[in-house]
């Protein structure tokens, strides 16, 4: 696209001149490249490499073997099912909400409030979400007290689960749905009105439109967004850190434990191998995500 715009405007000779100036303008890329290397590349490499180092800096695989520890495996298991469950529920609710927004004026009040609210809840959550859910379904929470005093239902009859892994489900769904709305609504907007018109002209109903056009076109985007939600929950730390009182039920909390307690001998670099484990999961998820997104882009031309 760039070539088609530049070639008629710029005659041949300045172009040759430009080639000579190439190195100077390439210098302009240096500060950003250095910054990214120092604060993104270097930390990532350190995080991954320390997993292979022992306390004295020698090469070891013992930290990787520590990944097979039942406690660590359990944390990975918890992280995976928590992320999967909240991603699926969040994706379904979010997609339903996006569907409801079809046909709403893009510049209307509803859209701008939904956009801003989703942005806040998806990105700002963290600590605040922990507070919100303690106030809602904590031991003295609004809903807990209401259910107990008015309906006689004790949600904590089998013990308080809010500060354990199951307690993370509702807060996680609370930030997953808004993220789904943010990421999935552009896909819905790529549905062309012409397709609906063609469907109507061929005598199709709304149902047949969704069955033969809408759903097949949107499916790759839907699964892509689902994976993004999974990745989002899997890497989330703040809510769990602020909510869970003790123990390290999910991997990010395990990493915190490994980073802050230097006393456990032979575990100096466990944080590194935990980080490696997380990265492996994230890379797998994000690779499938990018494949799905490329598939989805086919219909967005």
């Amino acid at each position: 696209m760039t070539a088609t715009i530049t070639s008629p405007v710029v005659p041949a000779s300045p172009r040759a001149a430009r080639r000579v100036r190439f190195p100077t303008s390439a210098l302009g890329l240096v500060p950003f490249a250095a910054y990214v290397l120092l604060f993104l590349g270097l930390p990532t490499v350190i995080a991954l490499v320390t997993g292979f180092l022992d306390g004295d800096g020698g090469f070891t695989l013992s930290n990787l073997i520590a990944l097979g520890n039942p406690v660590v495996l359990n944390a990975f298991g918890n992280s995976l099912w928590l992320s999967a469950l909240t991603a699926v529920i969040g994706a379904l609710l979010g997609a339903l909400f996006c569907y409801a927004l079809i046909g709403a004026k893009p510049t209307g009040v509803l859209r701008s409030v939904v956009d801003a609210a989703s942005g806040v809840l998806a990105q700002f959550g963290g600590v605040m979400l922990a507070f919100a859910f303690v106030a809602t379904i904590g031991i003295q929470g609004m809903i807990t007290v209401f259910l107990r005093d008015s309906l006689g239902i004790d949600i904590f009859a089998n013990g308080v689960w809010l500060y354990d892994t199951p307690g993370l489900i509702l807060p996680y769904i609370y930030f997953q749905v808004p993220l789904m709305i943010i990421t999935f609504s552009p896909a819905l907007e790529s549905l062309k009105p012409q397709w609906a018109e063609a469907n109507a002209m061929l005598g199709g109903s709304t149902l047949s439109y969704w069955r033969h056009v809408g759903v097949p076109v949107l499916l790759p985007s839907f699964f892509g967004c689902l994976l993004l939600l999974f990745a989002n929950a899997f890497s989330s730390f703040a809510t769990a850190a602020a909510l869970t009182s003790q123990g390290s039920q999910i991997v990010p909390l395990q990493i915190r434990g490994a980073l802050t307690s230097e006393t456990v001998l032979g575990q100096e670099n466990l944080a590194g191998s935990l980080a490696l484990g997380m990265i492996v999961v994230m890379i797998v998820v994000m690779s499938i995500y990018s494949v799905l997104m490329r598939r989805a882009a086919r219909w967005q031309r």
Partner: peptide, 13 residues
């Protein structure tokens, strides 16, 4: 940075 969780970045930071 979307792929690398902040908690992983912290280990290296």
């Amino acid at each position: 940075p979307i792929t690398i969780p902040a908690i992983v970045l912290v280990v290296g930071l």
